[in-house]
């Protein structure tokens, strides 16, 4: 990251005029690295690739968080206010409440695995694209 692609004194414009690198001179492929070789964060943030990453992440983690909070609070509220329902026995002395509690363990595992998989498939590759734009190795 600290490797400067241009020396700090040169402006990007001057560099483009002097050098023959097609990648940087080509107006269709905007560079996300500024004159000092540092990532241009505002340009990256407003790029479609970053928007896509942000949308994918936010649209996954917030609904999921709402989901597990609702499911957990349902368990808590039922335990507090629906005594007869949670005391209802299902098998042996195991009642609905204990099963709902164990169910929270199961939903936690499912959400954890789902997120790990989603992140690996949808988030990590997109992050890689943006890191590449900023001139970083993987």
């Amino acid at each position: 990251m600290t490797k400067a692609l241009w020396s700090p004194v040169e402006t990007r414009q001057a560099h483009q005029e002097n050098s023959g690198f097609a990648t940087f001179a080509d107006p269709d492929v905007p560079s996300y690295v500024d004159a000092d070789g540092k990532p241009d964060f505002e340009l990256i943030r407003d790029s479609d690739d970053f928007r896509l990453l942000r949308r994918r992440l936010v649209l996954f983690v917030f609904p999921m968080s709402a989901l597990f909070l609702c499911s957990y609070m349902t368990f808590v509220l039922l335990s507090a206010y629906a005594y007869d329902f949670v005391s209802h026995r299902v098998f042996g002395v195991v009642n609905v409440g204990i099963l709902l509690g164990l169910g929270q363990f199961v939903t936690t595992i499912i959400i954890t695995l789902t997120y790990a998989r989603y992140a690996k498939r949808k988030l990590d590759p997109q992050t890689k694209v943006i890191r590449g734009m900023a001139g970083l190795p993987d």
Binding site: M1, P39, I44, R45, F50, R54, T127, A134, L136
Partner: peptide, 15 residues
């Protein structure tokens, strides 16, 4: 600038 930097950094690790 700083806001953009933090946002990009938080989501991707760039910077």
């Amino acid at each position: 600038r700083k806001t953009a930097e933090m946002e990009v950094r938080a989501f991707t690790g760039v910077g």
